[in-house]
């Protein structure tokens, strides 16, 4: 049994922290719209990318490069150039979503290992096997929509390695199939690598409370004693049928630590930690906990229990200080 720990690195310090704390792989992006965390101040330029790859490889860790947004006709060449750079730099795999770009990578760089991004929205073995047959993908990251039993079905029917999200911010929508941000702001995860982007966010203290707006849309309003979270569109409080509540999802983080024995035993190849937009401190905390947990479960899955101190550590860095098993636990749906 093996289970790789795949950790986020939004900066060179975060990458070094992840590697030092025991990540098997780090995933990174260039400083532009070619990846789904296109936030200002984040990601790698040519110099930091070279340094990061050297640092990781020097310590036995792999570097996966996310090129997981969808190029358009007018910027196609920028994405293919990014694939070329990835191959030249010797990254261990590229994480792609667009089938056209995948075909380019497979043809031009046959040695380059291809992973299907969660943004590819492949939720069944038939979809994953499509990418395998046409482009030879070796791993797929599953959208956060399947129950564990459904994940097991997928694994049984595909030769492609499966990577699951284990911890971090939770997309409640099928990744790659959400245009909420595009509808509200004109900037989309698919094409711009941005969701509810910061430049559209306005905070205002009013008599009714602290209001958070995205492009003028009131996403949430916080009373004085409430902790104000980032106004991601799907995690606001809205009115439906006369009730005001988190109509889509609470501000919460995915945490699958307690499912780790089942995940490992069903043959999942890798656990992905979300959060390239988070600090090196977050990356360090979460990597340390998950390194210990994975080592423990690989030694003995039968007796594995998440330690209270691990859960406490993860709770501190969770969105809204709350956690969920998400779709892996069927009643969440």
């Amino acid at each position: 049994m093996s289970l790789e720990l795949v950790c986020p690195a939004g900066s060179l310090p975060a990458l070094k922290t992840a590697v030092d704390c025991g990540a098997d792989c780090v995933y990174v992006g260039f400083k532009d719209a070619t990846n789904a965390r296109n936030f200002s101040g984040l990601n790698f330029d040519d110099k930091t990318m070279a340094d990061g790859i050297a640092y990781a490889h020097g310590r036995g860790a792999k570097v996966l490069l996310a090129l997981n947004t969808y190029p358009r006709s007018d910027n196609w060449a920028h994405w293919t150039r990014a694939v070329d750079k990835a191959a030249e730099r010797g990254v261990d795999a590229v994480i792609l979503a667009d089938p056209g770009l995948m075909r380019y990578a497979a043809r031009e760089h046959p040695q380059l290992r291809l992973h299907l991004s969660v943004q590819g929205s492949a939720t069944s073995y038939e979809a994953i096997n499509f990418y395998h047959e046409h482009f030879g993908i070796q791993r797929a990251v599953l959208p956060r929509v399947l129950s564990l039993a459904q994940v097991e079905q997928v694994i049984a029917r595909t030769p492609v390695e499966i990577e699951l999200f284990g911890f971090g911010g939770l997309c409640v929508m099928v990744e790659g199939r959400c245009a909420l941000s595009a509808y509200a702001t004109g900037e989309s995860p698919n094409c711009n690598g941005a969701c509810s982007p910061g430049r559209h966010v306005r905070w205002e203290q009013t008599d009714a409370g602290l209001e958070a707006r995205v492009n003028g849309i009131l996403v949430d309003r916080f009373a004085q004693q409430e902790r104000a979270g980032y106004p991601t569109l799907c995690k606001g409080r809205f009115e439906v049928g006369g009730e005001t509540y988190y109509a889509i999802e609470e501000p919460t983080s995915l945490n699958t630590l307690e499912l780790l024995p089942q995940i490992a035993e069903m043959g999942v190849a890798a656990i992905k930690i979300e959060g390239r937009q988070r600090s090196p401190a977050y990356v360090g905390q979460v990597t340390r906990v998950w390194r210990q947990a994975i080592d423990r479960v690989l030694r003995d899955a039968q007796t594995f229990r998440p330690e209270a101190v691990w859960q406490k550590e993860l709770a501190k860095i969770s969105e809204g200080q709350s956690q969920t098993l998400g779709a892996y636990h069927r009643p969440w749906k």
């Binding site: 969808y70 006709s73 979503a97 667009d98 056209g100 770009l101 075909r103 046409h134």
Partner: peptide, 11 residues
Amino acid sequence: NVFNPQTLALL
């Protein structure tokens, strides 16, 4: 998610 001619051509 067809955004470019390469993906369109594939389909």
